[in-house]
């Protein structure tokens, strides 16, 4: 199912180009507005980066089930000879890959536009990005299945997901800020633990609740 979704996206290029373009445009607009001294920029760049990832990433999260609905594949998807948990984990994996692709573009772009050394020490930023991706994709995949069963899916998903991921956006933004300032003390670890906890809680919740979300 993961290879089917990735292959389908590679052939049709329906979602990822739009997601990347939206991310680049939002990043440019944020950078344009954030004309601040370097020390102030270091403090806010994490928040701007993660808000951009959220807004652009929501496109990919929404399309993970909307495309199945539109193309009449929903029944086929539910008819797969696998448990709903496998469908959830497959969709989650595809969304994590999509968010990782988005970050591969946005993190260097923010580093260039703001002159903040986001890629000087990649390991801590990659740790934050991986945990943030897992958390965002875990909540987003489950709620995308919920939102796509109603008649107002296109605007409902951000409305449902944004309040839920506030701890994740706060945690990722703070961990990114501390990583940029080379402060890897207890505060950084506390935020990383929050991100890991968020990912574990919501992947477990997704595994348990997904079958209720896709029931017909």
């Amino acid at each position: 199912m993961v290879s089917k979704d990735l292959l389908s996206e590679c052939r049709s290029l329906r979602v990822w180009p739009a997601m990347l373009l939206l991310g680049v445009v939002v990043a440019l607009m944020f950078a344009m507005q954030a004309d601040l001294p370097p020390e102030r920029l270091r403090q806010i760049v994490g928040g701007l980066l993660w808000l951009t990832i959220f807004f652009a990433g929501t496109l990919a999260l929404d399309r993970s089930f909307a495309a199945e609905r539109e193309d009449g594949c929903w029944e086929g998807l539910l008819g797969y000879p696998v448990s709903p948990t496998c469908v959830y984990l497959a969709k989650l994996t595809v969304n994590v890959v999509a968010l990782a692709a988005l970050e591969c573009v946005l993190i260097p772009l923010f580093a260039i536009l703001t002159d903040v050394p986001l890629v000087a020490h990649p390991a801590p930023i990659v740790t934050v990005a991986v945990l943030g991706n897992l958390g965002l994709a875990a909540v987003g995949t489950l709620l995308s299945a919920v939102a796509n069963t109603g008649r107002q899916s296109s605007y409902l998903l951000p409305l449902l997901v944004l309040p839920m991921v506030i701890p994740l956006v706060l945690g990722a933004a703070e961990a990114t800020r501390l990583a940029v300032e080379h402060d890897f003390g207890p505060d950084w670890w506390r935020w990383v633990q929050l991100l890991a906890g968020f990912a574990i809680v919501f992947i477990t919740a997704g595994i348990v609740l997904f079958e209720f979300a896709v029931e017909e």
Partner: peptide
């Protein structure tokens, strides 16, 4: 369907509340 989807959002929201309290308190 409304009851089912409402229940999922309510449970996910309740799981999120301690994380929101922790994050905002820090």
């Amino acid at each position: 369907r409304r009851a089912r989807l409402g229940a999922i959002v309510a449970i996910v929201g309740l799981l999120d509340v301690p994380l929101v309290i922790m994050a905002t308190r820090w």
